[in-house]
Amino acid sequence: MDHPVNQTNIQQAMLDQQKSDQRRKHILNLVLLALLLIAPAVIYPVFLMKILCFALFAVAFNLLLGFTGLLSFGHAAFLATGSYTTGYLLSNYSGLTTEMGIIVGTAAATVLGVLFALVAIRRQGIYFAMITLALAQLVYFMFVQAPFTGGEDGMHGVPRGHLFGFIDLENNLAMYYFVLAVFLGGYLLVQRVVGSPFGQVLKAIKQNEPRAVSLGYNVNQYKVLAFVMSAGLAGLAGSVKTVVFQLASLNDAHWHMSGEVILMTLLGGTGTLLGPVVGATFVVNLEYQLSQGPLGDWVDPILGAIFVLTVIAFRSGIVGEIQKFVRKNMG
């Protein structure tokens, strides 16, 4: 008799849960936004911009790993393509406004993303990871050989230029707020995509690909689209990074960079929106702190150890673990 009553109770409880989750999220987001807006008053803006660039890179990567279940081991290629393209354009065409350089850089990475996706999508799981790694290595060799990249030396002295032709980006504060705007744009785009019906299909593919196929979805099309979007955003991160630091180098294209973005995402929490941001903040800070101290040469082994610990002990990452904790203790 009381079965239906129970049912509605449970539904009500779930709705309440969702609402309080939502409210908490909104408050958290507003607080974080406020912090980001006043941060340059306290912290050196260039350092903040570095964090934001890598955070955008990790957010882009997470669209693929966290929400589609595809592990790309070649995302450095997109970062570097955005980086080199923008660097080349801004260095050689002084008439070009900064945002045009960034847009073209992003477009170049997107095109590369299409090429990668069409090849790599043919295999799944760990093969996908190996193929993207190999393709990225191919791109790396191309950048080593290409005349315009400056080879081992990299590309230096890229002018920051003027945004829309009249905002001087040599000013670090102006630069900071521009980077913040780009980051927020990327973040909100991913949030929108993940929440859309398209994003739901991506999650379905992640959880059970054969079932998504049997439901009639053209799974490969969805995967390619997600991949291309992720590649484009990674390229955007690279383009902006080049403008900030005024240099593009082979480091951006190296497999080490692909590994680093995986670590950022994993450590922060795959499949959460905020996770990659937290992870990127953590890793960039850690690398900076280590480089200042006596452990400067030990960055790699320490990153490796964090990798191992994260995989073994807390796969949900920092944000994932906090979410679990909050749900358990705060209803």
């Binding site: 590994g259 790699d300 490796g304 150890a305 990798f307 191992v308 995989v311």
Partner: peptide, 9 residues
């Protein structure tokens, strides 16, 4: 990823 971390170490 685990073996990648081990390799880095």
């Amino acid at each position: 990823l685990l073996t990648f971390g081990v390799a880095l170490m």
